[in-house]
């Protein structure tokens, strides 16, 4: 089980959060300027699925804020978590 550090509530159990997928650039920045291939890539590859992943977690059963979490997907170690203002 992950313990996610909510910037407002402190370290909280993963069960208080809903998963929001891989973090990606704000849609508004991409959709007006992207070429077809860039747009396809944006929708198909939201973020890089490397060992270290940036993900959104929604503190749905807490303060309701979206948190951007950087996590090692081989160990579940969380390296960083911050408020995601673009969601």
């Amino acid at each position: 089980m992950l313990v996610i550090n909510c910037p407002f509530c402190g370290p909280r159990d993963e069960r208080e959060f809903d998963y929001g997928g891989l973090a990606k650039a704000p849609r508004s920045k991409v959709e007006r300027v992207a070429s077809n291939s860039e747009w396809t890539a944006y929708l198909l590859h939201p973020g890089d699925q490397g060992r270290i992943a940036d993900e959104y977690w929604w503190h749905a059963r807490g303060c309701g804020e979206w948190v951007r979490v950087r996590r090692d997907t081989t160990t579940h170690r969380i390296e960083q978590s911050e408020v995601e203002s673009d969601r």
Partner: peptide, 12 residues
Amino acid sequence: AGLSYRRDIKQH
């Protein structure tokens, strides 16, 4: 929920 290469399961 969440990407994982761990091959174990979470308690919850």
